[in-house]
Design a protein around this nucleic acid. Structure first.
Lengths: 210, 210
DNA sequence: CATCGAAACGCGATATATCGCGAGACAGGT
DNA sequence: ACCTGTCTCGCGATATATCGCGTTTCGATG
């Protein structure tokens, strides 16, 4: 789903660069990376430790245990490797800021999907909990009820979710298409805002009528 | 912030009950608990392993290593403890379903806060990234330029995103509030759909006018 | 019986390490 | 140039364990 943040071998070099600044233990490197990405990207342990093991195997770093921490230190061979490829490092740094942006953009979209599934799960969990709660006391009556307004209501809400999402996506696309020609004014936004408020009010009114 | 899910000593007993069903390793217990909560609550390793260590210390379970796994098995003493407090277990089970519901309710509220701060961070990160991106190419020229249509356009689009999202959240909430009273008909959804299509058309029209 | 302090407890954060998948790089043949 | 199998690499998931903070429990002491 999410594309790799670091290209082939870039993480290796970047870790070396971080270790050149000062000796660090694994967890510290994870945090250091997370910091540079403003928390947007946190490399997992499964990414860092195998790389460190490899670097040690190649003799570019040495590890030493300090309490429950495993501190890694760069060796002369490591510094040599780093010097030889110093120019690549700048390019990596540039790619990184790019990756951050792409990640941030991706998150915006994914959060919505996550929200959807979260809400769906929550709703189903709530239903389940309610069933469980109502089962115990004294019920399970009316099992043959053909026209359950709740079922219809839930179906309608689900449909509405889809409608809302589609609308939102469409308008977002519309606006972006216009935006890169610099044609989206704040008046247009105000219009949108006002119209949406009106729609909401109208929809709410249909409920009040009953 | 979040209140404990398990009351004092309840986790201990619950783990024992899970181990009575079958021998399990630590991670498996975490997953088993996460399953019973429908993924809403996942006990952390820092919760499980100290408890297992304690149970072993008390002689209620034994551990045996199997590859990189540490399998825990209940002892006769453990079964005795469990028999002696079997009645408490039912009460715990009840509390649990309660906790799940409270957690789910809590999540609903917290997700909104989280979304808000996430959005704020994202927005600031995006601004930062944009600054960084515009600095490099060949610009900072129109530093005093008061009216850059692209900048304004992007700002407007961003604003529109917020408006769209707020609207979507509001209507979703509105519908759900009505839905659990079974008052959301498919006509209401159709109304919504039609009105939104109209709004989109109107917004697009303002661009065509230029 | 109240209260106060130590021990127990729940839990997120810290810390380390391995496994297996999928995507990409790369050397070799054709 | 163009496949093709292998090898590397990034990474989430799996797995274990400890630390320190805040709260709750519970027995001792007054």
């Amino acid at each position: 789903m999410t594309p790799p943040v670091f290209a082939h071998g870039h993480l290796r070099l970047y870790l070396l660069a971080l270790l050149e600044e000062q000796p660090r233990h694994g967890y510290e490197l994870i945090q250091a990376l997370s910091d540079r990405f403003g928390g947007t990207y946190s490399p997992s342990a499964g990414t860092i430790y195998p790389r460190l093991a490899k670097l040690e195997e190649e003799g570019l770093v040495t590890k030493s245990t300090d309490g429950r921490k495993t501190v890694y230190e760069i060796t002369d061979a490591g510094r040599a490797e780093l010097d030889a490829r110093r120019h690549e490092l700048d390019a990596i740094e540039d790619d990184l800021t790019d990756s951050v942006r792409r990640l941030a953009d991706g998150v915006r979209a994914e959060v919505n999907d996550a929200m959807r599934s979260l809400r769906a799960e929550l709703a189903s969990a709530a239903r389940e909990a309610k069933r469980a709660a109502t089962r115990t006391p004294a019920s399970d009556a009316g099992a043959g009820g053909t026209a359950n307004p709740h079922v219809d209501s839930n179906r309608a809400v689900h449909e509405a979710d889809l409608v809302l999402n589609e609308f939102r996506q469409q308008v977002r696309t519309d606006l972006r298409n216009q935006a890169h020609r610099g044609r989206v004014s704040s008046e247009a936004v105000n219009l949108l805002k006002a119209r949406l408020a009106q729609v909401r009010a109208d929809v709410l009114a249909t409920f009040a009528e009953r």
